[in-house]
Amino acid sequence: MTTRNITCILCPQGCNLEVTLDDGKVVQVKGNGCGKGKTYGAEECLDPRRTITSSVKVIGGEHPLVSVKTAAPIPKAAIWDCMKAINAACVEAPVRIGQVIIENVADTGINVVATRNVAKAGEGEEACI
């Protein structure tokens, strides 16, 4: 049996949660001020995940980089491998929002997708109306 102390992030209360684990299962969550906190405590201990946002190099675009995100939260443990893959990656302009830049990043089953449009250099897609 192990106990972990974490802070809940769901609301400004920031309850101090005491999560008791036994053999990879959550036995008890204490200190939560509400039901959502209980769920958060369990998830954060068993399978903590984060959405990673960063940028990827663009070749031949009107901007040198495109902002990207993991399409869903990835396991915390995979963050640095994910960053390695993002830093190694490259995409050719034009790039569209939602376009998959890296498939199955760091073996997480989750894609890295573009979060902005980048036109080809000189073909300025001005957000002009």
Binding site: S55, V56, K57, I59, L65, N87, A88, A89, C90
Partner: peptide
């Protein structure tokens, strides 16, 4: 610069 496109 940011450490990007290192493979390229």
């Amino acid at each position: 610069p940011l450490n990007k496109g290192v493979a390229y």
